[in-house]
């Protein structure tokens, strides 16, 4: 799993690649939580997931954990670009009601 990050105002934008499972979820959690801890101004999170090929329930759990983190800061979470198997995992877990999914980064940023 790869993750690169950029900051836009109050929003942390993270590009994810590869597979998000129990192993990579801990790296993902550490990277995002670390960035939030360093920059108290940040409150929103956008996950660019076009390059993510697999997410299981551990991955979904890690994303929901970040939703809690941004909610505690009064911010929002948006995800962008779910491949078919990833979207299916989101649907199976029932989180589509709680997480806003978008086709483009621009759309996601506008939703915050």
């Amino acid at each position: 799993m790869g993750a690169s990050m950029k900051v836009l105002g109050e929003t942390l934008i993270v590009t994810l690649d590869g597979e998000l499972d129990v192993h990579s979820a801990s790296e993902f959690r550490a990277a995002v939580t670390g960035a939030f801890d360093e920059r108290p101004r940040l409150r929103n999170l956008v996950l660019l997931m076009h390059g993510v090929t697999f997410v299981d329930s551990s991955g979904i759990g890690a994303i929901l954990g970040r939703l809690k983190e941004v909610s505690a800061r009064g911010g929002r979470l948006a995800v962008v670009g779910l491949q078919t198997p990833v979207e299916r995992a989101f649907a199976m877990s029932g989180v589509l009601k709680r997480i806003s999914v978008h086709d483009s980064e621009g759309q996601a940023l506008a939703s915050l």
């Binding site: 329930s57 551990s58 954990g65 199976m92 877990s93």
Partner: peptide
């Protein structure tokens, strides 16, 4: 504990 959802068997069943 932590961020485990308890959905493993649910996913397997689906």
């Amino acid at each position: 504990p932590d961020e485990h959802l308890g959905l493993g068997f649910h996913f397997i069943g689906v």
